[in-house]
């Protein structure tokens, strides 16, 4: 007992001793500092990488003398994210982007303490005077891809390799299925979920199972799709529609098109707003009208989509963008 109390004392006394000097001083040199918190790695070929590249592009355009960025990655849990958000705020960052729905609570908490800093998070809807929320309308491009896939499939079977049946994944999948139904209700969509976000091997096996059940065009979301795309590229005559970023470099001979979020324009919008004195208070939608969602076709496979089908696709796209075609969200 004594021993333990003693050791506690030693630890407590040791603490400040170990922590000699240091501490970041806030600087006001007119440089815009952007802090980004990512749930997975900045090289995940999907959600996190998209945002990382978006912020990088904005900072590069502004020049190193005017803007700087810092990244905290692989923060799946909101406890560490809370510390990261407050760190950036304490260090005098001007814009802090917490790139995940799970960061909502810590973000709101810190934002209340730093009214002069702009905070942003998404996919989300909660805003305040210094909080932006952003909300990619994943279902829009998904609808169009579903529509296109239903026209292109030879086997009349399509597959969705899902992570967890919620969030952006379910929005995307729901849109895809609606698109298929609009084009050809007799085409079957196989839909299944691995139950995790990052298990590549499992996603790969799931894609194999779909292909096994004669699916010849597959799609899916989250960082685990790297595995599913591998399975697709192993099989001739099987193709993939991608989400989050342009994933065609992963499998140039298999990816027909990608729905890519243009995070650069979103970040640019927030930077401009921040500089103009508007620190938040808006839900920023990523959709086809504002071109923050882009449907990028893989030039390698351009021959796969006949010109007349492509023309129809473009007119569908205009209808979805204008709202003439309503894509429903999951209830």
């Amino acid at each position: 007992m004594k021993k333990l109390l003693f050791s506690l004392l030693v630890l407590v006394l040791l603490a400040p001793g170990l922590a000699f000097a240091g501490g970041a001083a806030e600087v006001d040199d007119g440089v815009l500092r952007i802090g980004v918190i990512l749930p997975s790695g900045r090289d995940d070929m999907s959600w996190s990488q998209g945002m990382y590249e978006g912020v990088s592009a904005v900072v590069a355009n502004m020049g190193a003398g005017n803007a700087q960025m810092a990244v905290t990655e692989n923060v799946p849990n909101p406890v560490d994210a809370g510390a990261a958000i407050r760190d950036y705020a304490n260090q005098g960052f001007n814009i802090i982007i917490a790139h995940g729905s799970q960061y909502q609570n810590p973000l709101m908490e810190v934002a209340a303490d730093f009214p002069e800093v702009t905070f942003a998070h998404g996919t989300a809807f909660e805003t305040s005077s210094n909080i932006f929320a952003y909300d990619p309308q994943a279902q829009l491009g998904a609808y169009l891809f579903g529509w296109l896939a239903a026209q292109m499939t030879n086997s009349q079977v399509l597959g969705i390799v899902g992570p967890v049946r919620a969030g952006d994944a379910i929005k995307y999948n729901y849109g895809f299925i609606q698109g298929v139904e609009a084009a050809n209700p007799s085409v079957r969509v196989l839909e299944s979920y691995t139950g995790s976000f990052g298990d590549n091997i499992q996603a790969k096996e799931m894609a194999e199972a779909h292909i096994n059940a004669r699916a010849d065009i597959l799609t899916g979301t989250a960082q685990q799709v790297v595995g599913a795309i591998q399975a697709v590229s192993e099989n001739d005559g099987v193709y993939w529609f991608a989400n989050d970023t342009d994933q065609s470099p992963l499998a140039p001979n298999s990816i027909i098109a990608s729905q890519a979020y243009s995070w650069e324009t979103v970040v640019q919008y927030m930077v401009d707003s921040h500089m103009a004195g508007k620190l938040g208070g808006e839900i920023i939608s990523l959709d086809l009208t504002n071109e923050r969602i882009q449907l990028v076709f893989n030039p390698v496979l351009a021959d796969l989509v006949p010109a007349d089908l492509m023309a129809q696709f473009e007119s569908k796209k205009a209808d979805v963008a204008s709202g003439a075609i309503q894509v429903r969200l999951p209830e």
């Binding site: 729905s101 799970q102 996919t123 909300d135 967890v164 919620a166 929005k171 139950g195 969200l329």
Partner: peptide
């Protein structure tokens, strides 16, 4: 346990607001 958690968070226990706004993130109400 992890799967049970997802099952509840996207169903019974999901924040009604997540449904209302269509964001559907698996978390409970506050």
């Amino acid at each position: 346990a992890l799967q049970l958690q997802f099952l509840l968070l996207r169903g019974l226990m999901m924040d009604p607001q997540e449904r209302a706004y269509g964001t559907g993130y698996p978390q409970s109400a506050s």
